[in-house]
Design a protein around this nucleic acid. Structure first.
Lengths: 149, 149
DNA sequence: TCATATTATTGAATAATATTCAACTATTTA
DNA sequence: TAAATAGTTGAATATTATTCAATAATATGA
């Protein structure tokens, strides 16, 4: 047995997919060469970043989802981008934004359960120098990544 | 001229992509039939929801991104899911979650600019019966949908 | 424990699909 | 309005996914 699934999930989170030209062509009632041309154009213009999969996170051991609003300690206040890039490296982190308002950073984090979430927070507060932090746990996800659940 | 791009972007937001089995096979150094089998298994088990594109939103007229935290008026308080589903229908809405904490709903909204954002808010507050609302504008996106920008 | 059933792996054959190409059309530019 | 550029398209080709059948590994149950 070759436990390939976790590797596939990892690859699919970021890319390793490709457009279905024939199906789109049929749907839009255009020749597939026309669709092909237009997709390549979108890619050339860098409008498309990646082709990837969206998961039923409950079914892949990432059933817990939290929005974390954080402030940085004064030491790091000047360079939030650097910190944000570090945060982004974690594969459990779905998104990282630097935002306006009472908090500087919003992290969307997907973990297996509350234990894993707690472990993340414990380390993150120390490592990234968060000062004020609040979390909002997603009780119900209606739409993610533009996909209705 | 056939202005196909907007239609493609719409389709790619939700799906119309497919895995690149051959490339994954090469990467993982496994036969493509093995990769194929394992992907189909993930789909059968409903672990994969969709295959879609991620965009450089700045390049597709969705350069403005806001996190909206909202409370519902007492009238709707009992059925936030119904409201959330309505909110999710808007293609500018990337995600909708019902969450713990001071606010009931988090919306991630992508608009062309602040004007479009303002128009959305004006209508949304009325239509969905938001009471307290705060917005956090994303000044810099480091990672979205698991994809580093 | 061992027989049987189920699940997983894989190479070879086939079917489906993307890609290239060249001719043509529409649009933009100067 | 001529020339250049960008977009459309059918036919040919190259890639790739899919099916299939054989085999191997693992799980199940008496």
């Amino acid at each position: 047995m070759k436990d390939i699934s976790p590797k596939l999930i990892e690859l699919f989170k970021e890319g390793h997919c490709t457009p279905q030209i024939a199906r789109i062509a049929k749907k839009l009632k255009e020749p597939s060469t026309t669709i092909h041309y237009n997709i390549k154009k979108l890619e050339r213009e860098e409008k498309i970043k990646a082709y990837k999969a969206v998961f039923n996170y409950k079914n892949i051991d990432e059933g817990t989802c939290n929005f974390i609003l954080a402030n940085l300690k004064d030491d790091n206040y000047g360079d939030p981008e650097q910190i944000a890039s570090e945060i982004a490296k974690n594969p459990k982190v779905e998104s990282v934004d630097i935002v306006t308002g009472d908090y500087e950073i919003i992290i969307k984090l997907r973990t297996k359960d509350n234990d894993e979430y707690y472990e993340y927070m414990k380390k993150a507060i120390k490592r990234f120098g968060f000062s004020k932090v609040i979390s909002m746990t997603s009780l119900k996800q209606i739409k993610t990544e533009f996909v209705n659940l």
